[in-house]
């Protein structure tokens, strides 16, 4: 590292280069890596978007086909994430509170969507939810088609966002004192009351965080959804697939504008998740 004497005669008149020389090498590697790999591409996209006139930007961003893809992407992701909010919490609860055979394997398997490449997930989901697949054939008699419809997109999004809720709720549930629940029972609260009034409130921030994480993952998902959907505009075409199609047509401006919209929404989600996590920590 650099000498300590230079720390005393700081700050004003040093040249930029002298200051750079004081930065530890770990910082230099980190910052240059981030600059090349992360900031440069981000800058390229924002600058490309800014070469569009605001009116053009707005026109592309709110064209009917783009609006339809936002609707499909965000509504479906939200429904999928909320469903996982319910079932993910239930799974976390079962894994923390009860003992049953194969529990360890089931616990480990929850991470499968993180480990399985998304194209494999899309392939196998499309197969078993198709009209003659294992699950698809069960619901087909009721006139429900899953694969190659918006419902299929939802199933793929449920698949990839499931671990987020389970893995954010699980540690909180593990840390939670059982005494309080027992006290509630002793004081005559029913199971349902205990759950609603005692268990749920401290869990709520982590459930919301999990839902937000899952939602933001589902919004950006491409691999599994592109395979299970028919990618018909105004039906089940999602925003990431639209970006891909625009790129294939060499419509860089169109791809960039929709990409920027998606990116800005991810950034807002990231901010929301950080705020949620801060909120969850107030109990610590």
């Amino acid at each position: 590292m650099t000498t300590t004497s230079s720390q005393f005669d700081r700050p004003t008149r040093k040249s930029v280069w002298q200051r750079l020389a004081q930065v530890p090498w770990t910082w230099r590697i980190m910052l240059s890596y981030l600059s090349v790999m992360l900031f440069l591409p981000l800058a390229a996209m924002f600058l490309k978007a800014s070469t569009e006139k605001p009116a053009d930007f707005w026109r592309i961003a709110t064209s009917p086909i783009a609006l339809a893809t936002y609707d499909v992407t965000f509504t479906t992701s939200l429904v999928a994430a909320l469903l996982n909010g319910v079932f993910g919490t239930l799974i976390a609860w079962v894994l923390v509170r009860y003992d049953f055979p194969l529990k360890r394997i089931i616990d480990a398997s929850v991470d499968l969507p993180f480990a399985l490449p998304t194209s494999v997930a899309g392939l196998t989901l499309a197969t078993i939810y198709s009209q003659n697949g294992w699950v698809g054939s069960l619901v087909a008699p009721f006139g429900i088609k899953v694969s190659f419809t918006r419902l299929g997109v939802g199933v793929a999004m449920m698949f990839i966002s499931l671990p987020f809720v389970v893995r954010t709720v699980q540690p909180v549930l593990t840390e939670m004192e059982k005494d309080i629940e027992e006290a509630a029972w002793c004081l005559g609260a029913s199971q349902w009351q205990t759950f609603l009034r005692v268990v749920l409130p401290p869990l709520f921030p982590s459930i919301l965080t999990g839902v937000a994480l899952g939602f933001s993952r589902a919004v950006g998902e491409y691999g599994s959804t592109v395979i299970i959907a028919s990618n018909t505009p105004f039906k089940d075409l999602i925003a990431p697939v639209l970006i891909f199609q625009r790129l294939e047509q060499y419509d860089y401006a169109g791809a960039t504008v929709i990409g920027v919209v998606l990116l800005l929404i991810s950034l807002v989600m990231l901010l929301a998740i950080n705020l949620l996590q801060a909120w969850g920590k107030r109990y610590d």
Partner: peptide, 12 residues
């Protein structure tokens, strides 16, 4: 948090 497709787009 960035959609994989957007990552690809940025590299392009």
């Amino acid at each position: 948090s960035i959609s994989p497709v957007v990552v690809g787009l940025m590299i392009v």
